[in-house]
Amino acid sequence: MAAFGRVLLRSRQNLCLRWSSSTVEAARPAAATPDITESMQEQKSRRKSRRFISPEFIIPRGMRADFPTKNHVERMDMLRRRAVIDIPEFYVGSILSVLTSDPYAPGSFQQFVGICIKRGGYGLGATFTLRNVINGQGIEICYELYNPTINQVQVLKLQKSVDPHMVYLRDALPEYSTIDFNLAPVQHNPEDPVPVLDTKVILKPPPWYWRWERVELQGIDMEHMKENHLSQKRLDKMDDHRKPWMEFDLMYEYDTTKVEQDVLKDMQYFENVVRRKEETSEKSTEEEET
């Protein structure tokens, strides 16, 4: 009967709290603070027990995306692609190297190395943006995860940013976005928890891409910003945009338990049924040829 308020709201990604199955025991409110309270042991065991599901598998809430058949079929395609090319686990803040083949430069691969500043979309159209500063020029390239022209995605340094995105790097000093193309890959033990990138970034003087003083992002050096860059007028208006109630607005929470279960089911189905079928059909074609 009641159409309003019954179903969960379409989430805003910046402020979306994820309440997934492994965190039910410790219901954490708050803007995404990393696992400070958990000990190393607890974090390790949690990583072991919980299978990593890439965020583009988690469909957003709302009527628009709620079609089980479509989601199943899209996931099968995503898993097929993942069986061919290794799309590793990475987060906003990780340093990646991507090799793509370009129709206008045939015979060679184009390499780009950068820090991942945002991840967007869901399903086959999921994207991630890499940023680097080359010869003093800031460059960002937005790649689609499932684009077939991408030949290799390699994580040079796995680390997690404290914020949901790092777009403020555009207004930060270039040293934070400059990454050497020849950076040696840093090994990461899969059982260890992902290291958190907690550098506080110093911004260049305004004008900025966004009014960073109004957005609650942990990765920006707020003290330096307040002292050096902000006029009194901006400082006065800063607090008007704080939203302390968002932490407690339960409508913005997205309980991804069910979605994750569906995804795991689809993964098992893919491994058991679809892959086997494709392997047997390949074998039969090989036999026919010989």
Binding site: M78, R80, V84, S101, Y104, A105, P106, G107, P148, T149
Partner: peptide, 15 residues
């Protein structure tokens, strides 16, 4: 098809 290997452009005709 997603079960094919990634696209590689080997000649100028791939445009």
């Amino acid at each position: 098809r997603f079960d094919e290997p990634s696209i590689v452009f080997e000649s100028a005709e791939g445009t």
